[in-house]
């Protein structure tokens, strides 16, 4: 039985007298013990989805089952077995690290000791500061504390809403390492993130945009959705480069990507020399043209474009 079963849920909010669709007809399953990533830009509906799954808000339509319990009727059972870490740090700032952890252990009717093994690796890093108030911790430590608090009752499913937003690159890497460890303990993890590069670390990736899933697949499967040839192009005059490439025959799409433009083409028959010749004829200097393999972000741009059309 999958840990999470979502069937056709929709949710809309009224903002400024207009109805805004936050989630439109989403369905998916998460297998037990999987690391499921929901990836999409800000405002795509990630938080709304997580709040529905954690029984905080009700969907307008559809059915959700968490560990076999209905999210509407059996929310009490669900609350006992899930861990939720909201995107915003929301522990008691005026309580110390240890008091926060103890508090959440107690309200779940357990003790720190009982499940210490589960959080040991994470908690050990902040244990030297256990008498410090949570509000005075650094961003990375706050995040570790929040994760410890979400885990203290040994949940079977862990929901992490943008846990790595605003965290430095090293901590982000560490954090994903911790998630992998937790997965080994048999905990199902649902994690949302706006960072495409984190997608590769999940078992399954769902790309979300405007309240709809664009694709649900393994990272590899997702990447393979990108069928067109892709080139990274760079020149001394980037603005002119963009203008010129838009005119290029066989251009499917072009968008900035770091210091390059990613150019996807309609046809396989176009060679590097063809692009090079075209751009040289447009008097570009310092040209760099490399064939590349598509990443998740390229897939995302492609899928987004096709849904816009």
């Amino acid at each position: 039985m999958p840990s999470v079963v979502v069937e056709n849920i929709s949710k809309s909010f009224t903002a400024e007298k207009k109805k805004v669709l936050a989630l439109g007809d989403i369905s998916f399953d998460v297998a037990k013990g999987a690391l499921f990533g929901v990836i999409g830009p800000d405002g795509a509906g990630k938080t709304t989805l997580f709040r529905i799954l954690t029984t905080l808000i009700l969907a307008d339509k559809g059915k959700v089952e968490i560990d076999g319990f209905d999210v509407v009727k059996e929310y009490k059972d669900i609350r006992k077995r899930i861990g939720y870490m909201p995107g915003k740090f929301s522990l008691y700032q005026d309580l110390t690290v240890e008091e926060n952890l103890e508090f959440f252990a107690t309200i779940f009717n357990t003790t720190i000791k009982e499940n210490y093994s589960l959080i040991k690796e994470i908690y050990q890093q902040i244990e030297p500061f256990k008498d410090r108030r949570a509000g005075k911790l650094s961003g990375g430590m706050k995040q570790k504390l929040a994760l410890s608090c979400a885990l203290i009752h040994r949940p079977s499913i862990l929901f992490l809403d943008e846990p790595t937003t605003g965290v430095d690159a090293v901590s982000r890497k560490e954090f994903w390492h911790m998630l992998k460890q937790l997965q080994k303990e048999g905990i199902t993890i649902l994690v949302s993130t706006p960072y495409m590069d984190e997608a590769a670390l999940c078992d399954t990736v769902a790309l979300i945009q405007n309240g709809k899933f664009l694709s649900i697949d393994t990272p590899e499967g997702t990447v393979s959705l990108f069928k067109k040839p892709l080139w990274a192009v760079k020149s001394d005059n980037m603005y002119k480069l963009q203008q010129d490439l838009k005119q290029f025959e066989g251009m499917a799409s072009i968008y900035p990507f770091g210091e390059y433009y990613h150019l996807s083409l309609n046809r396989d028959s176009i060679l590097q020399e063809d692009i090079s010749a075209y751009l040289t004829s447009k008097v570009h200097q310092g040209l760099e043209i490399n064939p590349i393999k598509a990443g998740i972000e390229d897939v995302f741009m492609e899928l987004m474009k096709s849904t816009d059309d």
Partner: peptide, 13 residues
Amino acid sequence: EIGTIEQINVTPV
């Protein structure tokens, strides 16, 4: 405001 109520709400309290 701080969001702790949300954290409490997902617990069986």
